[in-house]
Write a protein that binds this DNA or RNA. Sequence first.
DNA 1: CTCTTAACGGAGGCATCACTCCGTTAAAGT
DNA 2: ACTTTAACGGAGTGATGCCTCCGTTAAGAG
Lengths: 228, 228
Amino acid sequence: MANEAGGGTRRTRAERSDSVRNRERLLVAARALFATDGLHAPLDRIATTAGVGPGTLYRHFPTRLALWEAVLEEPLRAQLDLVERALANPDRWTGLAGYLLETCAHEAERGGYLNLMTTRFDGAPRLSELRRQIQRRIVELISRARTEGVIRPDFTTEDLVFLTLSNSRVAEVTRDVAPGAWRRNAELFLDSMRPERAHPLSQPPLQPSEVALTMTRPAPRKPLSEED
Amino acid sequence: MANEAGGGTRRTRAERSDSVRNRERLLVAARALFATDGLHAPLDRIATTAGVGPGTLYRHFPTRLALWEAVLEEPLRAQLDLVERALANPDRWTGLAGYLLETCAHEAERGGYLNLMTTRFDGAPRLSELRRQIQRRIVELISRARTEGVIRPDFTTEDLVFLTLSNSRVAEVTRDVAPGAWRRNAELFLDSMRPERAHPLSQPPLQPSEVALTMTRPAPRKPLSEED
DNA sequence: CTCTTAACGGAGGCATCACTCCGTTAAAGT
DNA sequence: ACTTTAACGGAGTGATGCCTCCGTTAAGAG
């Protein structure tokens, strides 16, 4: 009640214009460098690119995670949108297949954001919550497709995540040379999901506890490689 | 004629025992650290692990590439063996499927050696030559399987390499939690290769020039990730 | 226009890693 | 045992990246 915007005993000072501007610049720079150089792009370089000193970066985003939180929320929401639209599709197969391809496309574009779905964001509750929501929808997506028989009965949610994860490596390797090459690979994956082609799998699906661990592994140190 | 072992005007000095011993120690340490920490494990740490000074390491292996050359030859030969054995198998499908699974197993074990087949080794002619040999056999393996109709007709050599590449990511992510989980993924891949009821692929195979570029990308900077 | 103060930014400390130089050690030949 | 000399190893240099401290600047309020 006290100290609210404009109503307290002590007025909250308005945010300084340069502060707002710098924050925005930092986010732009971070988005760019995360995409090209990965989620561990040098912070000093992000600051330089934004045209501010390192001190300013750390004032706005005390940790790398804070910066991730600010930058990654949008792509995660986009991902959530993707699942929602897949769920809305009455044709289960088309919905699911479209989801896989679009997710792969999503990751192929933003090379640096690779594997958002399997990256741990401890200390970034908003991101963690988003990831949880997305995963819930994927479970739904798979279970519906399975009950309607458009995918093989032994196919699980984790299998799907692993397929997108798998494809991200191909996207990573081919992005400079043949930017669309991942699609062919992903379409092969689609055929591996179909019920009429299924052969028994020797390996049982992961235990729930294993899934939890695997899906929340720490963020990769250096997802992309450069010259040698 | 002159200066040969024992026959020249000036005798070639025999190799010092400590030199041989240290070289061996360095190789042991390098093998271990490459496997656990990736092909870019700190050289100083390799030296320390081997119980020698950094100077000694650089004397034996002036560049990181020289160390790779010494360490990676054996696994590449093993890989060559794998293809040979697959080719020797009269049952084309079993041979090919076995090759895929064993290759994936191979990469899953030696996490640090990931994607030997798509890593460039400029300046290491022996490794490059080995890789070329392996690739030639794979082409043979695929073409035989295709003409005998045990795989889909639109499946190419690069598709196979990309599948193993894909799976390596899964192996990487699951190795600590569920070391065998990659196999399920790889078996899904097998189903995507089968000829029956294959669905058309929208993307044409890579151009030979694109293949060459993709298959010889620089070695990854930090293949593995640790705590965060 | 003046004052207050938050925001700025960069110099610099610390850690890691690649790589070298050189005084010391000890292996091998006599 | 003595000599020669290759091999040793670690201190040291430079580069990179993380992060902080603090003197300076300028935004916003009055």
